[in-house]
Design a binder for these strands. Structure first.
Lengths: 115, 115
DNA sequence: CTTGATTCTGACGTCCACGTCAGGTTCTAG
DNA sequence: CTAGAACCTGACGTGGACGTCAGAATCAAG
């Protein structure tokens, strides 16, 4: 697959894909002319990265987790990091849920007035 | 309350409070000498803003919502925005929950290998 | 072989919530 | 009255994930 197709399939920009490669998150072969050629799993990987970005993980952390994602083996340090990220994520979900509740209060109050 | 006390109570920096004022999110009186003097509800407001920031709302949007938060009245446009933000938040919570599940998969796989 | 679409490599620009430094003023305790 | 803490206003710096533009090369179709 070429970069444009991967971008469209994954719903990101071409620039983003080049950026991921810069950060060591995505690899590609090259055509004789130098154009990138992606393996079939590229789209899935990119979608996964987008999830992790949305979860607040920076590229650097994702890169650190890559080996254990790909090989399934982890060092104690990586397991600690995974646990920490898990905890952080759960915290964020709680925060968002709380924020949602407060927005709901506002909506409810507004509807009460307009009704 | 003076700015340092508000900052400590709310768990943010002094700089952040000045920034919120710059963005029209927070008001303050001034002492004759020009120092800021905050009302009692400032801490609560700041905590709320932090929640909304954590939820991904930029200052500009918060500022747009301020009138309906404060007065309880909303225009149709504001209600639409509130609904949109609500939906966005729910979407994000779903994303994070999903990302958490994927991290869990990795942790589980790693533990299986090490066990 | 030509044309138009796609891709390439730099490299600077952007947005946002502040951090940080400079240089000066105000407040408060003793 | 004085020292030190706290505060003031600019204004530039920061980090992250790209956007965007320039100028050139490659690719796929006819």
């Amino acid at each position: 697959m070429r970069i444009g197709e991967v971008a469209r399939s994954a719903g990101v920009s071409v620039r983003a894909l080049r950026y991921y490669e810069e950060q060591g998150l995505l690899t590609s072969d090259r055509t004789p002319g130098g154009h990138r050629e992606y393996a079939a799993d590229a789209v899935g990987r990119v979608r996964f990265y987008q999830q992790l970005y949305a979860a607040g993980l920076p590229s650097r952390r994702i890169a650190e987790l890559l080996p254990c994602i790909d090989t399934g083996t982890t060092t104690a340090e990586q397991r600690d990091m995974l646990d920490a990220e898990r905890a952080r994520l759960q915290g964020r979900i709680a925060e968002l849920t709380d924020a949602l509740a407060r927005l709901d209060e506002i909506v409810a109050a507004a509807e009460a007035r307009s009704a």
